[in-house]
């Protein structure tokens, strides 16, 4: 039901940069803390809807977004499934 895409980064600056790139292109992207399952460090990630997968992958290919990984989150709370793509 609750399925979304999470983009993680190697640095806070890359996350903030990606946020403005998405904003300029009118693609929804929400700054969220990186879930503890992925990293224990205090990091920022971007959450966006699944429908933006292609657009995001394209931006990564073009070098507009410098990310670390891309995850698909499904469900909420402890039972949620996390899959790296």
């Amino acid at each position: 039901m609750d399925k979304y895409l999470l983009i993680t980064f190697n640095s806070t600056n890359f996350a903030m940069q990606a946020e403005s790139v998405l904003k300029e292109l009118d693609i929804d992207g929400q700054i969220v803390p990186t879930p503890r399952e992925i990293t224990l460090s205090c990091g920022l990630s971007i959450r966006t809807s699944m429908e933006n997968l292609e657009k995001v992958q394209n931006l990564i290919k073009l070098g507009k977004i410098t990310n670390k990984s891309l995850y698909v989150f499904e469900g909420v709370g402890k039972d949620r499934a996390i899959k790296e793509i």
Partner: peptide
Amino acid sequence: DRLGSALMKSYIYA
């Protein structure tokens, strides 16, 4: 403030 703004979004989401 750019960082502060990102942190606030992160905080309220969390």
